[in-house]
Simulated assay, not measured.
Amino acid sequence: MEIITKILDSEALHDNPVNDKPQREVTIIENSPKENTPLLVGLAGFFGSSRSFLNKSYTNIDFMDVLNKISKKYSFIIILPDTMTYFRGNQYVNSTAVGNYSDFITKDLIKFLFKIYGKRDVYLFGKSSGGFGSIYNALHNPDIFSGFIDISGDSYFHYSYLRDFPVAYKILKNLGIKKFMEKFNSDYIHSQDELTAENIIAMSAFYSPKNTEINLPFDLNDGGLNEHWNAWLKFDPVNIIDTSGISLKNKKIILQTGIYDEYSINIGMNMIHEKLSMLNISHTYKEYPVGHFNTNHLYLESMPEILKDY
């Protein structure tokens, strides 16, 4: 395997509202690429970015361990773009409060890759927020992507997000978003509740912005849900499948999840599976006796499912 690093100057990210750099590092991992070897674009989970895929674990199988194992049998080209933002992660959608990260992936990155490798099949893959970004962008860009791997991607927001709202409300009701972010950025360490609050702010920046303003899905006066929650639900893959699911026909779709997921995302993943089945859209769905974290080993099954056809 060879690891290559290139820099992409993204047109979509120029003049973004939080002044994140538009020049992004793209890590490419090649293993005996052939003329028809597909491009597999990895989207990191929240609080992570491209280099997170390269982290070494001494207690669990890590992503590079996965690639080493499958490299003996398959050729591949893995693409890992830097997608980190001011909000400590990404949901891979276009946002007036963060930046046009769907365009970054579907326009700038794809153009960049085709210039290097020529036009060829492209797949998305990721876990958690990366899984969400994979299914979301595949649903909206069926002309670009041949399929995706979604491992416990954010779905059925009623279960996966609502549970965190009371925690975020407790912290934000006295500080508000601006003061909390100033404190968060200046502190060296953060409690789990603070990370939860920051995550909800970030999701609001992606799902329910108005221009550069971030609108929380609950009222800071009494904690009750407000109209911005409806804006969130428009991004829920469980809902998008109802209107755009047919766009996934003839795509390679692999859904994987843990039955002990700490955010109950397995329920949303099963709902996606059931809805795809109702639409007669071929896909692979598998549940495992694991939780939300330390699931790199699931790629040992899903990546070969894609690569075996090449």
Rank of each mutant, 00 (worst) to 15 (best):
T5V: 07
L13S: 02
K21F: 10
Q23D: 13
R24T: 09
T27R: 02
E30T: 12
K34A: 05
N36E: 15
L39N: 03
L39A: 08
G42Y: 06
F46V: 11
L54V: 13
I61M: 11
D62Y: 11
F63H: 05
N68I: 09
I70W: 00
K72D: 11
K72N: 13
K73I: 08
I78E: 00
I78N: 00
P81I: 10
G89K: 01
Q91D: 06
Y101I: 03
S102V: 01
F112D: 05
F112A: 07
Y117L: 06
K119D: 12
K119M: 11
K119R: 15
Y123M: 06
Y123H: 05
G126F: 04
F132G: 00
S134H: 03
N137F: 09
S146T: 11
I149T: 02
D150F: 03
S152H: 01
S152Y: 12
F157T: 00
D164I: 04
V167K: 09
Y169M: 06
K170Y: 06
K170A: 08
N174I: 08
N174S: 15
I177V: 13
K178M: 03
K178T: 14
K183N: 15
K183H: 07
S191Q: 04
E194L: 09
E198M: 14
N199G: 08
I200L: 14
F206Y: 15
K210G: 04
N211T: 14
L216D: 01
E227S: 12
A231R: 08
N239Q: 14
I246C: 02
Q256L: 13
G258N: 04
D261P: 06
S264N: 14
I267L: 09
N270Q: 13
M271S: 04
H273W: 04
S277V: 05
S282D: 13
T284L: 13
P289F: 05
P289V: 09
N294D: 13
M303L: 15
E305Y: 15
L307D: 06
